[in-house]
């Protein structure tokens, strides 16, 4: 199962993934592998299945066919007698701990302070002591530069600050892979930079990241690999330098040109 051309183990392996919503196919035969320490950006036009693909990884959106393997373990289904059957909620939840997700609209727990948001998972899912969880939370808050907001409620924070708390919440679970679902799409343009700079910092720490984004410049700058999706399928998957240096086809080239013009300011 281990790819032979890399040193690091596979954190995520997606094989022949398929998904339909009410008969309309949204993902077909998607194959993708992410190794430890890699940053992979998924780009492509809206409706191409990027977000569905990302949400399949932690099974927030169940897939219909194919396989998702997290650290070699099948997500969402169990194999019994050669057939795939839906796994239990408890097992799915346990496997989800190896993933962390950052949502487009932050999705912070509104009734909890920043600190409470961060220790919720470590205390009630991982069973850590409150002290240990708070320590983790402080470290994560330092990473995202929000140590002074520890006792604030999310509603009092700006969008950029909320998203950085969202990243910190994911970090506190110490996941093997971070999933970003268009983390800057809901932000005012002037707040995009602070979130991207935190993500850049995580890149520097060699975190494993799978990022759905419209920030083409950021992808070019930070991603090891770029995956281009169109109509539910992966059209291109190459190292960032090659991907941008020599676009595979005219459609990708046009897409890149259009997005470079739209948003070149944010970084």
């Amino acid at each position: 199962m281990v790819a032979d051309d890399v040193r690091y183990p596979e954190v995520l392996r997606i094989e022949a993934l398929g998904k339909s919503f009410k008969g309309t196919p949204v993902l077909s035969n998607v194959n993708l592998t992410v190794h430890r320490g890699e940053t992979v950006a998924i780009i492509g036009p809206s409706g191409s299945g990027k977000t569905t693909l990302l949400r399949s990884v932690n099974f927030l959106t169940p897939y219909d066919s194919g396989k998702i393997l997290l650290n070699g373990r099948l997500m969402g289904y169990v194999e019994r007698g050669g057939r795939l059957q839906p796994d239990t909620d408890a097992n799915i939840s346990r496997l989800r701990r190896s993933t962390g997700m950052v949502f487009q609209r932050f999705a912070l727990f509104q009734h909890r302070t920043v600190l409470q948001n961060l220790i919720e998972g470590p205390v009630h899912v991982l069973g850590l002591s409150r002290e240990l969880a708070c320590e983790r939370a402080r470290t994560a808050l330092k990473t995202v530069g929000l140590s002074d907001k520890i006792d604030q409620y999310p509603a009092r924070l700006s969008g950029g600050q909320q998203q950085r708390v969202g990243i910190a919440r994911a970090l506190c679970m110490e996941p093997d892979i971070l999933l970003f679902d268009e983390p800057t799409s809901a932000l005012d343009p002037e707040l995009v930079g602070e979130v991207l700079s935190v993500m850049r910092q995580l890149r520097g720490q060699n975190r494993t990241m799978l990022i759905v984004t419209h920030e083409i410049g950021f992808a070019a700058d930070v991603a090891d690999r770029v995956v281009f999706m169109e109509a539910g399928a992966i059209v291109d998957d190459r190292p960032a330098r090659e991907f941008f240096g020599k676009p595979k086809n005219a459609r990708i080239e046009a897409f890149l040109a259009r997005h470079r013009n739209e948003r070149s300011s944010s970084i």
Binding site: N58, S93, R94, R96, R105, F109, H111, G121, H124, V125
Partner: peptide, 29 residues
């Protein structure tokens, strides 16, 4: 918002735990 349940699940909570700790406390308000 549905994302509250999803966020709770994304940090590894089961459906029941997410209901108890995240969804119901906000819904009952």
């Amino acid at each position: 918002p549905a994302d509250q349940m999803e966020a709770a699940k994304s940090i590894g909570m089961t459906h029941g735990l997410a209901m108890r700790r995240i969804v119901l406390p906000q819904s009952l308000r």
